[in-house]
């Protein structure tokens, strides 16, 4: 198994950016430093033509540390190359740079992650809840949020 070209190029530009990589189940994956996600994505978009952000999500690995993992899926529509990029976040510092400047769709995906996981996106211009309502407290997809903890706007509590 040899390094992917994307990996080599990113390393050349930012030697400390890539922490790990693997190719399990045929999904090419890079694990990068969360603070450098913007530079990584810039390289991917400009030099490798990853012009579509297919998916952006987060996984909560409580009680592991670091707790959160951001997961980005990129696609090059022309050459049909796919790449997954992951970045790990500590609970105490659950914030990462927004990708809105590269991909407009990141706007809604990031709002969703903020809503359900409570990850802050720096540079996002309109970071508010998208699936739930403003009165809702907490972030339901975190593992420590009980599934049936309701916060109704009206009607009985349960």
């Amino acid at each position: 198994m040899s390094k992917f070209p994307e990996h080599i190029a990113i390393e050349k530009a930012n030697p400390t950016a890539v922490l790990d990589w693997h190719e399990r189940f045929g999904d090419r994956t890079l694990i990068v430093e969360a603070k450098q996600i913007v530079e990584v994505v810039r390289t991917l978009k400009d030099a490798f033509g990853y012009d579509m952000l297919v998916d952006l999500t987060c996984v909560d690995y409580l009680p592991r540390r670091p707790r959160f993992e951001m997961v980005y899926h990129f696609l090059n529509v022309e050459s049909k190359a796919r790449l997954r990029v992951k970045a790990q976040l500590e609970e105490s510092h659950a914030r990462v740079a927004s990708l809105m400047e590269f991909y407009p769709i990141a706007d809604w995906f990031e709002r969703e992650v903020w809503d359900l996981f409570g990850i802050k996106f720096e540079g996002h211009t309109n970071l508010k809840r998208i699936m739930l309502y403003e009165e809702f407290e907490g972030h339901p997809l975190r593992k420590d949020y009980p599934k049936t903890k309701r916060q109704p706007l009206m009607g009985p509590q349960n």
Partner: peptide, 19 residues
Amino acid sequence: GEVYFPVEGGNGELGYYIV
């Protein structure tokens, strides 16, 4: 493990990212 599997749904790429 983790996988991402896309299929073509009625409206486009329906992908499941499963951990």
